[in-house]
Design a protein around this nucleic acid. Sequence first.
DNA 1: GGGTTATGCGCAAACGTTTGCACATGTATC
DNA 2: GATACATGTGCAAACGTTTGCGCATAACCC
Lengths: 344, 344
Amino acid sequence: MHKNRARIKDLAEELGLSTSTISRALTNDKRISERVRNEVAILAKRWGYTKNPFAVNLHQNKSNHIGLILPEFTHHFFSLVLKGVDKVVSEKGYNLIVNTHNDDHEKELKAAHALNSLLVEGMIVCYASNNEDNEGFKFYKDSMQSGVPVVFFDRLCEDIKASYVITDDFNGAISAIDHLVKTGCRKIGYLCGPDDLSTNFNREMGFREGLRKNGIPGNEDLKFSWDKDIERWKATCISFLRDNNIDGILCFSDYIAYDVLCLLQDLNIKVPDQISIIGFAGEPISAFTRPRISTVTQPAELIGKRAAEILFSHLENMDSQTIYTEVLPTQLTLRDSTRTFAML
Amino acid sequence: MHKNRARIKDLAEELGLSTSTISRALTNDKRISERVRNEVAILAKRWGYTKNPFAVNLHQNKSNHIGLILPEFTHHFFSLVLKGVDKVVSEKGYNLIVNTHNDDHEKELKAAHALNSLLVEGMIVCYASNNEDNEGFKFYKDSMQSGVPVVFFDRLCEDIKASYVITDDFNGAISAIDHLVKTGCRKIGYLCGPDDLSTNFNREMGFREGLRKNGIPGNEDLKFSWDKDIERWKATCISFLRDNNIDGILCFSDYIAYDVLCLLQDLNIKVPDQISIIGFAGEPISAFTRPRISTVTQPAELIGKRAAEILFSHLENMDSQTIYTEVLPTQLTLRDSTRTFAML
DNA sequence: GGGTTATGCGCAAACGTTTGCACATGTATC
DNA sequence: GATACATGTGCAAACGTTTGCGCATAACCC
């Protein structure tokens, strides 16, 4: 309701001035005398006057809103991204409107439409993974055409020409393989994530390149596919590890790392003495397991920060066609699921 | 920018009608003939017309926005609350604007002001813990006075007469004590959280009541204060546990539970054989430790859901002065840091 | 055929701002 | 004392909707 909110008109009547003068005084227009500007400022403060944003937005055709579309809130990675985005956005005096799609492509489209109809000035998007059709992409393209920039993060799609900021999954995976090899692993496997994720693809590519550059031959196909059916996954994973004499594992995620850790512990296989494990992401849980899981930490908050900064640079430079592709480095966080050099 | 957006006027010109007719046709006003309503609907769809929200908001003095103020995004508890709130809010066709304060009272006030000046229709707030002065409360009171309902959650303050939804910390703590006693603990201690949190107070009260009703005398003061200096905390905590022959611990949080678990493991004290531990919250990490930590799980998502629902019931019933105070039950999640009955 | 009623639509004001233009003073210049 | 210019302010239109009221036209009744 916001009852009894003061309007410019009220200020004007109180001071015996016109609305235009008040409006100008409030924006410190030099054409208004110092004296009047002060009077107005004081009364505005006393009455707790704030501009009606709708009137302003309507007039300027500008919303001061940024839209953010996330897969979900409860993943620590995404909440860090949200934090990074929020910092920049609120620093710029903008407001953030958030939406989630739970990797449901239709919900994503609905969210994007909703944001669009709210006239957000720009969008930051991590799109739904099951992105076969390109109806969503068409929408984003239209959006950019009509002057609403979109910045993508985390997940990459070649089909769409837009700015994005992602993790350097490729080199992150390589750094993990480097470390596994350095600490003595020779039969290294990769436990995949969902295969429609660009992140999974890039980590696997890094895995292969890591093996190649470290001169570990005949290992490239030691990858084990992801399976939604966790019990089936566990059962077959065991044989994968056994049959291939795996002594080092790179996982798509920290959660997979945890699962395989449990699996090994059930079989009384020592981690890292017999098998080393490295997770991916740097989720908090990786620091709470026993042994604590070494992981490739993603710069989650920085991803959000950069995505927002890039979005604003688009906004401040609408005529330019420049596109930013930012690939942020990971950091190898060594804990107890990998051997130290001293162990060798 | 949103270039080339169609307006009602454009639709009107195209169809040779007036803007009022279009406007009414779009809202299915029965005064407009079926035929015209169809024509309008079809053209609107073809042109992808959506109403300019600012014009609508300005005219109706209504924003369709709900504001949410959280301490932070990265705590799993709060992200679940956010999820719950978001579900209800988007189901109602409203938009969510989020803000965080990091337990900084000034930032909280700023966030509240920001939301207010955006003309949100209602606010859901978890206020900053260091809430000595009541400038913020004054603001919330004013807000409610002016017809913008506020619903508080998680943290409780008697000073302010408003709806709130909180966890039943008191009975949650009792249920934990019950279980500790039932599984043989006799010297039970409480590891406190920050003492300006109502949640901490209520959990301690539950702790005491649990001891009383279970007939464990002379235990009520076995509480150990929280200390920001973690090293000092650890050092003194040890002696607290030793000096009092503690055999069961209730913790303010899962993180404290984890810390004390590590402490005990360093000293080679067996959990739960020698000492049982129960955490509080149901944070994911509690399921990943070894032993996995038993915990009093809070209905985080439900808290968000109920807070939002209550907010909407205020909005739909602005004249009513009813105030809702909802205390949601916890659930005792038993894992491996407590003994099973069989162990006795 | 005059009066009533129903149907379908348009006019114009309003929401609270911003802003191009004009206007009224005052001051300086020659 | 006319001209020019600077200073400070106001008028009114515009942004895109919604909506009370009124006006046609057609249909109906007796």
